[in-house]
Each structure stands twice: as structure tokens, then as C-alpha cells.
């Protein structure tokens, strides 16, 4: 969007003013995230830049808050929990979601929009309602004594339910550009269903499946409301531990954890971006 040569002086002023406004908005978006990173190396237990830090004195920086995480039983436990629950719920969500997306992309499927609505609903219902409903239900499903609340299974199932819509949406989107003739070709050459699925369909939709899986993982990894209501002390995840930290005694350890999470999300973002590009290249779509 270069400035056109016929632009008048007023337009030129606006052009630069507009760029300035945009810069300010991008600043607003990104600075809150970036500001945490240097603060997590603060040698003092403060949440603000000390004068020493601003003068870049070496003693003003330290890794003590990172050491805090490593030495803290609770943080380590919650990191472990986050990965266990995240990976398990992603596996459930991805396998069920991919199968469903394959069905949803078939033209013959009856009542498609109703089914889609039901399958997407966990993404639409506000989390607080989901959490409340799951708390009631999982404490005594169908009035039985078989309580899933405060167990790993319960949290994993809940997170899997929250993650499936993302898998369904991304895989369905990938399947839009999928050439059905490839399945017919595979069948006509004598491949059975599983062979066709794993050798033909899967490699082509894999980018969609992986990005769906990443979405599902992030959903679980970042989720705190359901965990607040349903998980016991034993199942505390990283966000739950951060919540407790922010509510009770906010210590710079939280900033160190936050920095680690920012690194993780940057990596996830890069992966998703790579997958998207690969997918576009494979389908010959270029923007």
C-alpha cells in the first residue's frame, strides 16, 4: 500500500498518521507479551523494572525465578500434569475429530448442519457454563456414584470434548480441497479401506490433522476454568497453578513460567504456520 503519486498534501499527512496509528495498535498488541520476558530475569522480587535493570547492570538480572520453578515440587507436578492431560486429551480429540470430519465431508451425510452444530457446541458454550455443567454431571453421572470429578480421566475427557471442535473444523477445511477421485483410484487399484486411509487420505490431510491436534493441545494446555471446577489438587495444571499464584501470592516465578509459555506458543505458532504453507502448496493454492 504505497502512497499514490497523485496524493495531495493532506493525504500524505494522513498516510503517515495512519501508519503511526497502526504502529500504536501493534504496540498495544505485542508489548504486554514482550514486557514479561525481561521482567522474569529480575533479580529483585518486583514486577517492575528496577533502576539497575534499566542501566543494564549484570547484577540486576538473574535466573533465580527459573531456579524457583525447578526447585518447586508443585510447579514441576503441574507441568507434568499439563502435558499428561494435554497429550491424552489431544489423542482422544484428534482421533474422534478426524473420523467425524471424514464423515462430515461426505455429501451423503444426513442432517449435516444439525450434526455440525452439536459437534461444534463445546466451542460456543461459555466455559463457565461448561465447567459448571461438567462439575454437576461428573460428580454423579446419571445419579450414580461413579464420580469422574477430581480424577485424571474426568479432566482428560472434559478437555477432549473442548478440543474436538477445533479438530473437526481444521480437518473439514482441509478436506474441502481433497480430490475424491484419489480414493476411487486407490479402490480401483485394489487397496482396501485401511490401506486407502493410511496411504492416500492420511498423508494428504495430515497438515490439517496436525494443526487440529495442536489447537486441541493448546485448548487443553491453556484451559483453567474446567480445571478450577473439576480437578482436585492432584490434577493441578500450569494455568491452575498460575491462577492460584495470581490470586494468592503473586511472585515473579509466575513471570518465569509465563516466559516459558510464550516460548511454547511461539513454537506452536511457527509449526501451524509451516503446516498452513505446506498445505497450501500441496493443494496448489497461493494467495
Amino acid at each position: 500500500m504505497a502512497i499514490p503519486s497523485y496524493a495531495g498534501p493532506l493525504e500524505r499527512v494522513w498516510y503517515y498518521l495512519y501508519r503511526l496509528i497502526c504502529a500504536a495498535i501493534f504496540f498495544f498488541l505485542i508489548v504486554p507479551i514482550l514486557v514479561i520476558i525481561p521482567l522474569s530475569f529480575n533479580a529483585e522480587p518486583y514486577f517492575t523494572f528496577t533502576p539497575e535493570m534499566l542501566r543494564f547492570e549484570a547484577e540486576a538480572f538473574s535466573l533465580r525465578w527459573y531456579a524457583d520453578i525447578v526447585n518447586n515440587e508443585q510447579w514441576l507436578h503441574s507441568i507434568k500434569n499439563s502435558f499428561i492431560i494435554g497429550i491424552a486429551s489431544t489423542l482422544v480429540a484428534t482421533s474422534l475429530g478426524t473420523l467425524a470430519a471424514l464423515g462430515l465431508s461426505r455429501a451423503e451425510l444426513p442432517a449435516k448442519s444439525l450434526l455440525m452444530g452439536i459437534l461444534i457446541s463445546p466451542m460456543i458454550v461459555p466455559l463457565i457454563i461448561t465447567a459448571a455443567a461438567m462439575f454437576f454431571f461428573y460428580s454423579a453421572p446419571f445419579g450414580s456414584d461413579f464420580a469422574l470429578a477430581q480424577t485424571y480421566t474426568g479432566v482428560i475427557l472434559a478437555h477432549a470434548a473442548l478440543g474436538t471442535p477445533f479438530v473437526v473444523i481444521t480437518v473439514t477445511a482441509t478436506l474441502v480441497g481433497f480430490d475424491k477421485n484419489l480414493i476411487r483410484a486407490s479402490n480401483s487399484m485394489g487397496a482396501d479401506m485401511p490401506t486407502t486411509f493410511f496411504k492416500v487420505i492420511m498423508p494428504l490431510i495430515l497438515p490439517g490433522v496436525i494443526s487440529g491436534a495442536l489447537f486441541a493441545f493448546v485448548t487443553s494446555f491453556d484451559e483453567v476454568v474446567v480445571v478450577l471446577f473439576m480437578a482436585g489438587f492432584e490434577q493441578r495444571t500450569i494455568p491452575r497453578q498460575m491462577w492460584a499464584g495470581i490470586r494468592e501470592q503473586i511472585s515473579p516465578t509466575i513471570l518465569a513460567v509465563a516466559t516459558l509459555l510464550i516460548i511454547i506458543s511461539t513454537m506452536l505458532l511457527a509449526t501451524i504456520e509451516l503446516l498452513r504453507r505446506r498445505n497450501e502448496k500441496m493443494r496448489g493454492v497461493t494467495y
Binding site: 474422534l96 473420523l99 461426505r106 459437534l119 461448561t130 459448571a132 454431571f137 453421572p141
Partner: peptide, 23 residues
């Protein structure tokens, strides 16, 4: 086609829709 959707449908009904209806 429906059988492909069925497992997830059942899963969402049990883990999500029933709790909401229950509430």
C-alpha cells in the same frame, strides 16, 4: 458416513451435551 461421525457424536453427547441438559 454417519458411522464415521457416530463415535464423536456419542462422545460429545455423553461428555458435554448431557451435562448441559442436566444443568
Amino acid at each position: 458416513a454417519f458411522l464415521l461421525v457416530a463415535p464423536l457424536l456419542l462422545f460429545i453427547l455423553v461428555t458435554f451435551i448431557f451435562p448441559i441438559v442436566d444443568m
